[in-house]
Design a protein around this nucleic acid. Sequence first.
DNA 1: GAACCTATGTCAGAATGCTGACATGAGTCA
DNA 2: TGACTCATGTCAGCATTCTGACATAGGTTC
Lengths: 152, 152
Amino acid sequence: MSQKGVGVDLETSLGYLLKEASSALRSAMEEVLRPLGMSVTHYSCLELLAQRPGLSSSELARGAFVTRQTMNVLLQALERDGYVTRPAEAPVGKVLPTRLTPSGRRSLEKASAAVRSVEARMLADLTEDEQSDAFPILQSMIHSLRGDNERA
Amino acid sequence: MSQKGVGVDLETSLGYLLKEASSALRSAMEEVLRPLGMSVTHYSCLELLAQRPGLSSSELARGAFVTRQTMNVLLQALERDGYVTRPAEAPVGKVLPTRLTPSGRRSLEKASAAVRSVEARMLADLTEDEQSDAFPILQSMIHSLRGDNERA
DNA sequence: GAACCTATGTCAGAATGCTGACATGAGTCA
DNA sequence: TGACTCATGTCAGCATTCTGACATAGGTTC
């Protein structure tokens, strides 16, 4: 077993495992959000707005890990369906601050409960210590991958 | 801070952090693979074939976390470009076992080195203990999310 | 004030991946 | 043998997201 020095051993690769976990999480979220007529990006956008009202399209895009073009398309649909509102004109600069409507907030509540149940299931078999360990580990990975350490 | 009971707190959510880490990993991989003219799915397919020669299209799809239709399109391109070979007729059933060509193997070697460097960077700031902890934690998450525990 | 850089919103086109559907081969079971 | 179930490969159409490009607003520097 265990590769003859060449290649990435998928059986022991933390990168592959990370991708696998993320894929499983996404699938589980899609499964519970589908009955609510909501996609993961859709949900992410509403959740971001609930916690940080007035975010711009570009900021939402970064928070949901998509491009600002993609987020803009989504926002247009959400606005059309009455889940969010944006001023017709930018109060300052070009930034259009977005906010949830009561309808959007109601819609989010169900979705949020569903997502919380998925996250709880994900952590069900982990000990308290493991859950505590996971946080700094993932943060370190993110920090290192983004190259925040580069020549300042 | 810390949400008033409602919603998922993105600041402390392991699910969000997992998505963030996965996104950062994907970006980092795309960055190093782009100069080699290779996408992440493209690379994943070749790496899988190097470790498990003779996999079918459907098996490769599951290993690369895409649908079998998507993998089939990719395989057609890889076959056209001489990186993999598939028998014209299925030796048994409908399964077409796929194998790397020498050209595919050479192409993979460079990509694999690049990906290994990304993975090394990802783990650079983690202690030995943390790296050891990460493995069972991620595996537990995957196992729980897939519902492998359900009523047997 | 002018030049410069950065970030934002937006439009257009293209790539990528997915869902739905179908026929076929293999295994199971009565 | 025949009916049933399941997995595979494949075709077609659609959805989602991305890349490229542009104009504009704000801040910075000289």
